[in-house]
């Protein structure tokens, strides 16, 4: 059950945070939108979150998780949260980049270490993110309560991608973010912005030759069926944020707020395990798929370094052209990352 592994901190009643604390909670329903569908990490996160909150509040707090779909684009969902139409959302900073410019920091390649575990540790502890970046978001009525990784992003392709020259004239599907486009131009690729709903067919027909995503998403969307190679490049992490509407959150009674904070914290370990399990499961599946064989290659440290060298100047572009605080958050984050990786 949800209460079993809680530390119980913040609850004056002791380890069993159940009935007494929740006795003065009003019955209420919150809406929790995600950018993914049932079975995928974000949605499962919201469903688990809902389950735990229900148990902790003795059924007083009902959270309805929403799959991606009818509520418009990812950007629309962001605005829905900002306007208080929904209380909670999982969002990718990539979809707020047109507003909170600093959020594009997560598009930079080879910023986080190649270990997903270390990356998660940084996301949990970084002051640059959990304080400075959160403040940027709060200007827009969005409060990120936590940052977590859905796994490292990998490349799939029709021809091997092991060194930067493999990207020469390579048609790479990207999202429309200028920083992502810059990142692939830095390798000499031809970034082709495209909606993911057209991506399967485009890969199949060769309109684009490659794409990037966490492994579970590659498998769930069957991109491996139409690609011959997968490069474990760990060039980036797909980072998501658990967010709440700022005014709504600040107006919550203390006991309810405590329940939320506590659950958010527990969920960090849960989602780390969830994405790990999903990514590992799909990696095995993709490797063992004999009908659609995919050659999986993991980059060596030297190979990664060759890409990283080309990716570094994009950080200057971020500092000069994207950041509104001259890259102060990036510089602080880089120091924090150095500290963690030096351990």
């Amino acid at each position: 059950g949800g209460g079993d592994d809680t530390s119980g901190e913040g609850s004056s009643e002791g380890s069993d945070s159940g009935s007494e604390a929740s006795s003065d909670i009003e019955a209420q329903t919150w809406r929790f939108v995600t950018e993914e569908v049932k079975g995928q990490v974000q949605y499962e996160y919201a469903a688990e979150f809902a389950k735990r909150m229900k148990e902790k509040s003795d059924g007083k707090i009902t959270i309805e998780p929403y799959e991606y779909g009818g509520l418009g684009s990812e950007t629309d969902q962001v605005e829905l949260l900002q306007n208080g139409g929904v209380e909670m959302a999982v969002m990718s900073p990539g979809f707020t980049g047109n507003m909170v410019k600093e959020g594009q920091i997560f598009a930079l390649h080879f910023l986080f270490p190649d270990s997903v575990e270390k990356t998660q540790e940084i996301l949990n502890t970084s002051e640059a993110l959990n304080k400075d970046l959160v403040e940027r978001y709060e200007e827009y009525s969005i409060t990120p309560l936590s940052f977590w990784t859905e796994g490292a992003t990998q490349w799939t392709s029709s021809s091997p991608l092991e060194k930067p020259s493999d990207f020469e004239n390579f048609k790479m599907r990207t999202q429309t973010s200028p920083l992502i486009i810059k990142s692939y131009e830095a390798y000499g690729a031809e970034p082709t912005p495209m909606s993911w709903s057209e991506l399967y067919t485009a890969l199949d027909r060769g309109t684009v030759e490659g794409q990037e995503n966490p492994i579970f998403f590659i498998g769930d969307a069957s991109f491996n069926e139409v690609q011959d190679h997968m490069t474990i490049s760990n060039h980036n992490n797909y980072v998501a944020m658990t967010t709440v509407n700022t005014e709504w959150y600040n107006g919550l009674p203390d006991n309810v707020k405590t329940l939320v904070d506590e659950t958010v914290e527990e969920m960090q370990d849960w989602v780390y395990d969830e994405q790990k399990e999903q990514n590992e499961k799909w990696l095995e599946k993709i490797k063992n798929d004999e009908e659609h064989p995919t050659e999986v290659v993991e980059l060596t440290e030297e190979q990664r370094a060759a890409f990283k060298e080309l990716a570094l100047p994009v950080r200057d572009f971020y500092k000069k052209e994207v950041s509104t605080v001259d890259g102060a958050i990036l510089e602080k984050l880089q120091k924090e990352i150095e500290d963690v990786t030096a351990e």
Partner: peptide
């Protein structure tokens, strides 16, 4: 008015939305 206040820009040309 809201779009104006938030100062959202378009993703490619970076023009005000």
């Amino acid at each position: 008015l809201q779009v104006h206040e938030r100062g959202t820009v378009t993703s490619s040309l970076q023009l005000p939305a």
